[in-house]
Design a protein around this nucleic acid. Structure first.
Lengths: 208, 208
DNA sequence: TGAAAAAAGCAGGCAAGATTGTTTTTATTG
DNA sequence: CAATAAAAACAATCTTGCCTGCTTTTTTCA
């Protein structure tokens, strides 16, 4: 009974799912503004009427898509955190993971939203809490990575954010400077710098 | 004669100038797409007809504005390079300069263009050379900063780009994480890290 | 149980608004 | 008088959100 009693609901969820995925794909491939409701509906194999039935306004659809993106990101980070707890991931590998994250679809989708959020106070307000959750998850993953280092958690946090900002900046630059070798080099250097910062060989006042 | 013979030309140049400045202002305040030709013309106190007379298409206007932005940026960097040559600027001050650059109007305008360029092959192709020039200028400024360090120019270049990517990433994050103290902290830590990297106390193989 | 009513998902047409670029006019300068 | 700058009206697209039906599923009630 419960099974057939909700056949329609299941169908509805599937449609929403396809719409959200199509939205992310469109924004990623064409950009925030070029992703029209028409294109999204077509890509999801759904009529535009159906799209507007599930998401009365474009903004609602985009926001739902964004929450989905970050949730997926969080899930990925949790996996990484697990592998770190297992001690099956090193700092070097964590850096590689971060760079993959900031040079792929996830990041460029974020970038579209960030750029848009800068000009849309409402969107920005809605995204800030979601971003907070995201960083909280990253902190957890990182805490595992640093568990054996000499740094306390606040210092380790600084080092994490240094790393992430570096990768983020590299991701942005990659748009107009497509030179994989260049980024490879920066990543490698950073992988060698990180242990130095974590080792605690530096003055205590370093992070004051 | 030359004066009156070109009164009209002067007028034309002034109009173009106002249009370009208005374009940058509009894109900065409202975003790339929200900056319509109407708004730009109104802001420049010029009729839309005149705007289209000088820049037949919106794309041409935006590109001209962008070239202007980067040229101004280059001019600013040259000034800094001069002060570095004078030895009237330290590494710490250079970092501060970079952070100002990546947390202000110049950077957010660039970000609008970068995001757009990711989805517009034509725009991207036109911007890459301009960006190259920009980085070349930065290299020159940096060469002055590093003249007295133990690093050779290639190593110094890596350190420069590490610094710039860091600042760039911070600038992006600042949109959805408006916490000045947080960025202050990262900047300070980096100011202390940089001399370490430049000092050459690290293995030669560090930058291999 | 079974049929009608209600609700939900879905499809497509439609109007309103906005934006761009063209074309036509006017004015100013040489 | 010719040419260039500037203004203004105009046409052509696009995109969004609304509204009206249609079909399928679910619920209700006799």
């Amino acid at each position: 009974m419960a099974k057939s009693a909700r056949r329609q609901q299941i169908r509805s969820v599937e449609t929403r799912e396809r719409l959200i995925l199509a939205t992310l794909d469109e924004i990623h491939e064409r950009g925030y503004h070029a992703a029209t409701t028409q294109d999204i509906a077509a890509r999801a194999l759904v009529s535009r009427g159906a799209l507007l039935h599930h998401f009365p306004t474009r903004a609602e659809l985009v926001l739902a898509a964004m929450e989905r993106l970050l949730d997926d990101g969080i899930a990925e980070i949790r996996t990484v955190a697990g592998r770190v707890a297992n001690e099956s991931m090193t700092i070097e590998e964590f850096v590689e993971f971060a760079w993959r994250m900031f040079s792929g679809r996830f990041f460029y989708l974020s970038l579209e939203m960030i750029t848009e959020a800068r000009n849309d106070a409402s969107l920005r307000a809605q995204m800030i809490p979601v971003v907070k959750r995201f960083h909280a998850e990253l902190d957890i993953a990182w805490a595992g990575v640093c568990a054996s280092s000499a740094r306390d958690s606040q210092e380790a946090g600084i080092i994490l954010n240094l790393t992430l900002c570096l990768m983020r900046g590299m991701g942005v630059q990659a748009v107009l400077r497509p030179e994989p070798a260049y980024y490879r080099q920066l990543v490698e250097v950073w992988k060698r710098t990180l242990p130095l910062l974590l080792a605690g060989r530096l003055d205590k006042s370093f992070f004051a």
